[in-house]
Design a protein around this nucleic acid. Sequence first.
DNA 1: GTTAGCACTCTCAAGGGTGGAGTGCTAAGG
DNA 2: CCTTAGCACTCCACCCTTGAGAGTGCTAAC
Lengths: 368, 368
Amino acid sequence: MAPNLTERRLFILKLVVQEFIETANPVASEALVRKFGLGFSSATVRNDLAALEELGYLTHLHTSAGRVPTDAGYRFFVENLMERTSLSLVEQRMIRHQFYQVRGELDQWIQLAGAVLARTAQNASLVTPPRAEQLRFKNLELISIHETMVLAVMVFHSGIIKQQTFGLDGVRTSEDLRRCAGRMSEALADLTLSGVEELLAQDAVRPHPTFGEFERVVIGLVTHAMQAFEEQAREHIYSDGLLEMLSQPEFIPALARDDAERAVERLRRALDILKSGRGLGQLIPQALASEGVQVIIGGEHSEDEMREYSVVLARYGVGGAVTGVLGVIGPTRMAYPRSISTVRYISSLMSNLLSELYAGESRPPVEE
Amino acid sequence: MAPNLTERRLFILKLVVQEFIETANPVASEALVRKFGLGFSSATVRNDLAALEELGYLTHLHTSAGRVPTDAGYRFFVENLMERTSLSLVEQRMIRHQFYQVRGELDQWIQLAGAVLARTAQNASLVTPPRAEQLRFKNLELISIHETMVLAVMVFHSGIIKQQTFGLDGVRTSEDLRRCAGRMSEALADLTLSGVEELLAQDAVRPHPTFGEFERVVIGLVTHAMQAFEEQAREHIYSDGLLEMLSQPEFIPALARDDAERAVERLRRALDILKSGRGLGQLIPQALASEGVQVIIGGEHSEDEMREYSVVLARYGVGGAVTGVLGVIGPTRMAYPRSISTVRYISSLMSNLLSELYAGESRPPVEE
DNA sequence: GTTAGCACTCTCAAGGGTGGAGTGCTAAGG
DNA sequence: CCTTAGCACTCCACCCTTGAGAGTGCTAAC
């Protein structure tokens, strides 16, 4: 800690950050003294504020404006000043209850997690589906939709399902299809993508005794589906809470300190980020490789588009087996303590649910 | 047609609407004469504009402002003045090509339709998944995830799939599960929701000979899934193109005639409508029951929230069997000809794709 | 090191004036 | 009777000014 950071200055920094987070207005020396009944005068506070500005933790937009935290200021706040809180037990219980109501429906969890994150942190949320690092084939079913049209349902370990329809050359009975599906299921069981590809390659060299044209088409289909999935899983990000984020003053022209113009421009930018995932860059893979809650603040992003946003992320999942990332995204003036505790809670809740699903053993109840 | 609607007045009305749609600025008499080289003076145009205003097709916000179409004006334009155009062949081909690339993946169609609609009409889009008016059970598969956890995959006619995991009391082998699934598949085959419910009810009165506790749990699961689906299908609307809609001047404060405030308020409203489907009211069921492209303009909506928006909708699907709705939503100042032709094209394209899938017979190629 | 006092800076909101755009009306012309 | 030129009138949009208020930075005294 820098030498000229006295106890008092730290305290004042903390107050400034908290106050700005709460009110979204630049905070003035006088106001601090008044609001918190500090035992020293506003002139003293002014000196300290100037010192904190010198250190790079605060700025002000013009001479007669109050102070505003810089990214470094938020960072310092998050690392050293913030009190580590948890969601209230009531909130925790309400959240658990909601998850209980959609038990068994994995894809609902993701949506629910997104919605709860957004609502609780009052910002946008993003969730990636849990992803096994390697998809393993489990089972195949072929269902005739009509004479020449077949629906293939592929089930993978970890409960992921892909469906795909395709046309036939000739007509096949359902019995025929069922037998074929059984045969294929056996042949492909437990294979990963590379395993399936290998099988296909071998078959090209020395044709498999029981495979016909049809079987090869199906294997091609499976390969395609697995490839598509691996690709898409890397990309696809579910997001929610635009409306919640929009209720932040940064996006409300009347309240925005600067031009109304910019409020909307900001909004467009935010939408773009959430929709395309552009700007998130390496954040997701990075979070997947880390433990605990990651906080990335404004200019710390590698992407310039994110200069005005902060992201709070955490990994969830069981062991190294099935993992995803979830988090909150919002303006740098974000209620970090709340966002962090929300993300932490939801990620551990999701981890528990997943481990119940996959390991059959539940961890001790989530507690903070 | 009202008696004092001369040829010329109709022509002028058409020009005003087109011009306003294009520029988003109130259109002045002088400007019309200049831009289109009309063979009569601005004073004449002014008289006609006044007459058209008298008839309720135009307004102006204050004495010295140009004319703006009313909802009735748009309506008249759409019904009587607009030229019925089609998408260019190049566009049609590009769109077809994109659909070709995701052939076989039904849920991708929906997303693609949403994206294409939005991009082509430069507004937000909404698409409901194709829905059979009655879900019919086809097939069930039970897959053991681990000892006490089972994944149920339910397949319905029309290729809809639902999955649900659930816990077991005891341990069961996969062989056991498979047999059970086969038994259940047979028992429930081709039943609708009410059929399954009836079966369950009968079983309560006089227990089915081959059903055990486990079978009853599974039937309960199926019922639940079917109920959830029927409920959700009614509700769930996929939407896209927020960004496209945001690029309309109505949402850009600098260009909005009125306050910047309102541009953002409008936006929040639009987001809310798209996310919750609130405000769409009876539109979807109505569109499902109609043929052709429906246009609902501003105040014609039953819901007041939609006063500033128009919706262009069309049903798609095969016969009465599997149908959905897709369309475009945007400010009343919408490029109706383009929106309508886009919606018409995409809906007939989707219908073709679906009929290929379900009927095995393809309609003649889509052409306008 | 702390504080009171004060000059200075900058924003924000309100007021007033001006130019321009566009209409509505009237009276004259075809 | 329809069309048109001319003109007064209205209202917005923009600019400028002004004054109040907020908050700082500095200085000198404690």
